[in-house]
Lab assay of single mutants.
Amino acid sequence: PAHPYDRLKTTSTDPVSDIDVTRREAYLSSEEFKEKFGMTKEAFYKLPKWKQNKFKMAVQLF
């Protein structure tokens, strides 16, 4: 299930529990994912792991 970005980011005051914290981005809706990352999930997962992590750090999901 998708969760709002505000509850997934590492600085959230009301974090979602029971998620894989190493894959926070996977819980974003497709729309919100595209808004935050500027690309689709499919394109994101084709990137090298280090680049994925760099993007995730930039949007507080790492």
Score class of each variant (00 low, 15 high):
Lys51Met: 14
Gly38Met: 09
Gly38Pro: 01
Lys41Met: 09
Met57Lys: 12
Asp20Thr: 03
Pro15Ala: 04
Ser29Gln: 03
Ala58Glu: 14
Thr11Asp: 14
Lys49Pro: 03
Pro1Asn: 10
Ala26Lys: 10
Val59Asn: 10
Lys56Leu: 07
Leu8Trp: 05
Thr10Met: 06
Phe33Thr: 02
Trp50His: 09
Gly38Asn: 09
Pro4His: 06
Glu42Lys: 10
Pro4Lys: 05
Asp6Thr: 00
Glu42Phe: 07
Arg7Ile: 13
Pro48His: 01
Leu61Arg: 02
Glu35His: 09
Phe55Glu: 11
Val16Arg: 01
Gln52His: 00
Lys54Ser: 11
Leu8Asp: 11
Glu25Gln: 01
Lys49Gln: 10
Arg23Glu: 06
Phe37Val: 02
Trp50Asp: 08
Lys51Tyr: 11
Lys41Asp: 05
Gln60Trp: 07
Gly38Phe: 05
Ser17Ala: 14
Gly38Gln: 12
Pro4Trp: 07
Glu32Cys: 08
Asp18Ala: 06
Tyr5Ala: 02
Asp20Pro: 01
Thr13Glu: 14
Leu61Pro: 05
Arg7Trp: 08
Lys34His: 15
Arg23Cys: 15
Asn53Gly: 04
Leu8Met: 02
Phe55Trp: 12
Leu28Ser: 02
Tyr45Ile: 02
Phe37Asn: 00
Arg24Ser: 06
Arg23Asp: 05
Asp18Leu: 07
Asp18Phe: 09
Ile19Cys: 09
Pro1Thr: 12
Val59Glu: 06
Lys46Cys: 14
Phe37Leu: 09
Arg7Asn: 10
Ala2Asn: 15
Lys36Gly: 01
Asp20Lys: 03
Thr22Cys: 13
Lys49Gly: 09
Ile19Lys: 02
Pro4Val: 03
Glu25Gly: 02
Lys51His: 07
Lys49Leu: 15
Leu47Glu: 05
Asp18Met: 05
Leu61Asp: 03
His3Ser: 03
Thr40Ile: 05
Ala58Leu: 14
Asp20Arg: 02
Lys9Trp: 10
Pro15Asn: 07
Asp20Gly: 08
Glu35Met: 11
Asn53Thr: 10
Val16His: 06
Lys56Asp: 02
His3Gln: 07
Asp18Arg: 01
Arg23Ser: 09
Thr40Asp: 13
Lys41Leu: 07
Asp6Tyr: 00
Lys46Ala: 12
Lys46Arg: 13
Pro4Asn: 07
Thr10Asp: 15
Ile19Glu: 05
Ala26Glu: 12
Leu28Asp: 03
Asn53Ile: 14
Asp20Leu: 02
Ala43Arg: 10
Lys34Ser: 14
Leu8Arg: 00
Gln52Phe: 01
Glu42Pro: 10
Leu28Gln: 02
Trp50Lys: 05
Thr11Met: 03
Ser12Leu: 01
Met39Cys: 08
Ser12Thr: 10
Leu61Val: 11
Val59Met: 15
Trp50Phe: 07
Phe55Lys: 15
Met57Tyr: 10
Phe62Cys: 15
Thr10Val: 13
Ser17Gln: 15
Lys34Thr: 12
Thr22Arg: 08
Ala43Ser: 14
Arg23Leu: 05
Thr22Val: 04
Val59Ile: 09
Arg23Phe: 07
Lys9Arg: 01
Glu31Lys: 10
Thr10Lys: 02
Lys56Ala: 01
Lys41Gln: 12
Lys54Leu: 13
Phe33Tyr: 02
Ala58Thr: 12
Ala58Tyr: 11
Glu31Trp: 06
Lys9His: 10
Phe44Glu: 00
Arg23Ala: 07
Lys49Ala: 12
Ser30Asp: 15
Lys41Asn: 01
Leu47Tyr: 09
Phe44Met: 04
Tyr45Lys: 03
Met39Phe: 08
Met39Trp: 03
Ala43Lys: 09
Ser29Pro: 02
Lys34Met: 15
Ser30Ala: 14
Ala43His: 10
Thr22Met: 02
Ser17Leu: 15
Gly38His: 13
Thr40Glu: 11
Ala43Met: 13
His3Thr: 06
